[in-house]
């Protein structure tokens, strides 16, 4: 089928990707300041958004459970970082997220549409409250302290997780499971009658993508000294990836990454320059983006590009 044939476009994209990766790998050696934190933050949201898109975009199942897996990552870091090496902690966070996502998936993925969304929302509240109660019984306090890592370590860890997320995303989308997810999204009943094990496909992919959400949480937690359930399971973590995916476009994986990066940048800039008006301006920008860029930034870019190319070709 020539699936991996090196077309000109593919060579260009690969070259761009390599340049970006080299730039990212070198960044902490060039500067130590704010930029490292900002880019790490962009990568965090890129991980969450790409992981979210892999399952939710083709299937149309809008999950708001991201904060649950992310927050569990926080707690894994709080409990294990220090006693165990950071890399091991990140892996444990992924495993915990996977197992919890399997359970949640088995419970919720039989639901459809808005019921699924509401249930995943409720799951975050549930996990939040369970952790709160357990903490009260075990530690007798609300929060915990986390063994910190340097900004540089967190940066590289996030870079590795981002690469793993993107690789997994590409593999899933290219494989037969990519087609299965799309079929499920387009007509679940027909998918089942064409031989797709709908429940297992959904649950496994949902759990797999949750791994990266948990890992991102574990990394970010080590940049804070103190966490509590309110911080770990903040609903914003569930909403932002959805908005970023819409903002960037979901047709391919570049869109969500760009969406996450630009959105994070705009958010940070607004927050530092106009702390009072932050939410208001952010809201307006978002509404405008959704109204005027239905296919996201990437869609807008492609549209402009076609116009430019078409304009050149059109005879005068």
């Amino acid at each position: 089928m020539g699936k991996f044939a090196l077309t000109k476009n593919r060579i260009v994209s690969l070259a761009i990707l390599v340049v970006i990766l080299v730039f990212l790998a070198l960044l902490p050696t060039i500067t130590k300041g704010y930029l490292v934190t900002l880019v790490a933050d962009m990568m965090r949201y890129a991980v969450l958004t790409v992981a979210w898109v892999v399952f939710c975009a083709p299937t149309g199942y809008l999950s708001l459970a991201t904060a649950a897996f992310y927050g569990l990552g926080f707690y894994v870091a709080a409990v294990f970082n220090g006693p165990l090496p950071f890399a091991v902690v990140i892996i444990i966070a992924g495993v915990v997220a996977f197992i919890v996502a399997l359970l949640i998936g088995l419970l919720t993925l039989r639901l459809r549409g808005v019921y699924f969304t509401i249930f995943t929302f409720a799951v975050v509240l549930l996990v939040n409250n369970v952790v709160l109660e357990v903490e009260r019984l075990v530690t007798g306090t609300r929060g915990r302290f986390v063994e910190t890592e340097t900004a540089q370590t967190a940066f590289y860890a996030m870079l590795v997780v981002l690469i793993a997320t993107l690789l997994t995303a590409v593999l899933i989308r290219r494989s037969r499971y990519g087609l299965a997810l799309q079929s499920i999204g387009e007509y679940e009943e027909a998918a089942a009658h064409s031989g797709i094990n709908v429940v297992m496909t959904k649950v496994l992919v949902f759990a797999t993508t949750s791994v990266f959400m948990g890992m991102a949480g574990a990394i970010i937690a080590t940049r804070r000294t103190y966490i509590d359930p309110g911080i770990a399971f903040n609903m914003t973590t569930s909403f932002l990836p959805v908005l970023m995916a819409m903002f960037g476009g979901m047709g391919n994986l570049v869109g969500p990454v760009i969406g996450a990066a630009v959105f994070t940048y705009i958010g940070e800039t607004l927050l530092t320059r106009f702390p009072d008006l932050y939410m208001l301006i952010f809201g307006v920008v978002l509404i405008l983006a959704i109204l005027f860029m239905p296919a996201g930034i990437l869609g807008l870019g492609q549209q402009l590009w076609r116009k430019v190319k078409g304009g050149r070709r059109a005879p005068a």
Binding site: L179, A180, Q182, S183, E186, Y187, E189, A190, A191, H193, S194, G195, I196
Partner: peptide, 15 residues
């Protein structure tokens, strides 16, 4: 009950 946004050939490949 087809997969409307999926190309014809890939609809069949699902089977």
């Amino acid at each position: 009950k087809i997969f409307p946004h999926v190309p014809v050939i890939r609809n069949v490949m699902v089977g």
